[in-house]
Amino acid sequence: MSSEVDAESADLECELDNVQGMVDALSSVRWKRHQDAVIELSEHGIVLVVEESSCVQAKVYLQKELFVRYEYSAQARVRFGVSLGLFVDSLNTFSRPAHSSTIEIRYPGPDMQLLLRSVDSLDACIYAEIRTRIPETISWDYNFEPAGSTPLSFTVKSAALKEAIDDLEWPGSSIQVSLQPAPPVVTFRGEGHGDLQIDFMYYANTDLLTAFHCDREESHRYKYKFLRATTSNIPSSVIKENRGSKLTIGRGGMLKVQHLVSVAKQSNSHSHADSAGYLQPSRIAYIEFFVKPEVDDDNAND
């Protein structure tokens, strides 16, 4: 097999100098062992989408600014399916602890593969060829729309959100999320084998709940396993950098959860305090989850 593919034939050829950041970003939407993902390439960057039972969808946005080099030459957007687990596991082999490693990503290979190759060293090279497939027709867009004139949203420390959702595991399969304006509070309530209620009071702890927008009372129920998917694999860098996650309730009670994951080049100094994210604000991957509410008997909140 002649593997010297000429560069002109590739739709995408890009280089990334922080593999671990990409592993972190993609891992954060990996809530099951076997997950199929759809990747969309465009001149703006790479978007990866995963979906489960038409109830929860997650997207990872890797804009072209995250890459050291990003050359996109196809006319239209390109989409293909790939196994998320294999993609993350193989990316992970490129990442070396305490080293920043640079990889080249190309698509398509001679057999429509996604090609990865390390480019740091001339005498040692790691490569991967990942089989892609024609993507299944997934509902690409969950049509998230704000409900009413003012958005219902709050921003909470990612670590606290994860902890709260982890704690809600025991009461049961359905979690009620409520927002109320006076006094401003966000409530997570699980009922089942027992009751557990976790309140985030806006005035009591402004460090925890950093923003709160709510002009009316609203409450929806979500399946625990889908809510759990939104925080089950939050990368440790998000916790270390003390980042926040933004939650918005849209029309019909659809919940949007947004995380920020740093894909900045690892600095050689070992200080986390001035995490490179602040120095390179553009080098953030955006993660979005959309969770549909459980359908009630009456469609009160339409």
Partner: peptide, 12 residues
């Protein structure tokens, strides 16, 4: 495997 080829080469 059928889904992936992953390798490393060390030279010289």
């Amino acid at each position: 495997t059928t889904l992936i080829t992953l390798g490393a080469e060390f030279r010289k």
